[in-house]
């Protein structure tokens, strides 16, 4: 069976995640060898995933961590862990 480009596209995500079976993987790879369109689609998708996953891309708001820990420091003192058992009384 020969894969058409549309077929290859529909498996791109699973192919990237290594979630296709061996047989299909081999067919996709055979197709990629001679199809520059599918190769470019695959390479660009992968490239975009690497870029979006980089920590520089999605930044936390300035001061996010400081504000979070300041609030925790203030509220943990009064906060009670639910189901406090008598063997482990909080100090």
């Amino acid at each position: 069976m020969k894969l058409r480009c549309e077929h290859v596209w529909s498996y791109i995500s699973e192919y990237i995640d290594d979630a296709v079976d061996t047989e299909l993987r081999e067919e996709i790879e055979k197709h990629l060898e001679h199809c520059e369109i599918c190769s470019a689609v695959l390479d660009s998708t992968r490239n975009i995933l690497v870029l979006t996953a980089d920590e520089r891309t999605f930044e936390l708001p300035v001061g996010f961590s400081e504000r979070l820990h300041a609030r925790l420091a203030k509220e943990l003192v009064a906060a009670k862990i639910d189901g406090e058992s008598p063997e482990n009384p909080s100090p």
Binding site: E36, A40, V41, D43, S44, N47, V50, L51, D54
Partner: peptide
């Protein structure tokens, strides 16, 4: 949900994120 059709792709390096 079809991709943009390209005939070649040049790797965009991570430095582009600067």
């Amino acid at each position: 949900f079809t991709p943009a059709v390209l005939t070649d792709w040049r790797e965009i390096p991570l430095e582009a994120l600067e």
